[in-house]
């Protein structure tokens, strides 16, 4: 491998994927010149196998499969520090959203299942109840992730403080949320929305 050369061409760069990310995120991927400022300020850097600037570099080099298969995109906290500080106006937080959507839609391989499970349950809650019921969210997450004892000590503490409620003020118009979800699904079927 010592003499292996990396060939760069428009084919290996897979511009098609880059353009898809750019269209979804509304941000340029190609404009990044690798100053590394995003990674320097990223609070989640130590949890990622690829720091944010390397993710952009991998995309530029057509290595998107490595990005989608890894856990880094799921460990982005959406704190917006990178997008705020980028000297070249690359909206990395939006690029992360686009990458997660592409990975999510493809149900592709990823090393990070807990974050995806939490996201899925969060969205199901919205669709069913119109609002987030934290107690239900946490209980179902523990069950489905097989961590039955997670945060066990927090439960009683929160209940005595009245912070976890068994019953909530209900949204009286919850059918409207289902219509929003189905209209979006409909648009996607017709190819009218990403």
């Amino acid at each position: 491998m010592k003499n292996a050369k990396m060939h760069l061409s428009t084919e290996t760069m897979n511009l098609g994927f880059v353009k898809k990310v750019e269209a979804l995120s509304g941000s340029s991927v190609r404009r990044c010149f690798q100053c590394g400022k995003c990674s320097a300020g990223c609070p989640m850097r130590s949890f990622m196998e690829h720091p944010p600037n390397r993710i952009v570099r991998l995309l530029q080099l057509g290595q998107w499969e490595r990005v989608l298969a890894g856990r880094s995109i799921w460990y982005c906290a959406s704190c917006e520090t990178c997008s705020t500080r980028c000297p070249n106006k690359v909206d990395l937080a939006a690029i992360m959203d686009a990458l997660r959507k592409l990975s999510w839609d493809a149900a592709g391989p990823s090393k990070e299942s807990y974050v995806q499970l939490a996201n899925r349950l969060f969205m199901e809650n919205i669709r069913t109840y119109g609002r987030q019921y934290e107690m239900r969210l946490a209980a179902v997450f523990n069950m489905k992730s097989g961590q039955f004892l997670k945060d066990l000590m927090l439960g009683p503490k929160l209940i005595t403080k009245g912070k976890l409620k068994m019953f909530h003020a209900k949204n009286q118009n919850v059918g409207e949320i289902e219509r929003i979800f189905s209209r979006i699904e409909e648009m996607r079927k017709k190819g009218e929305a990403p």
Partner: peptide
């Protein structure tokens, strides 16, 4: 009858839904 804003999880995987 306000709804959940979608918070971080919605825009993380579905921008259009989050905006809607």
């Amino acid at each position: 009858d306000w709804f959940c804003c979608g918070a971080t999880p919605a825009h993380n995987v579905d921008e259009l839904l989050s905006l809607a």
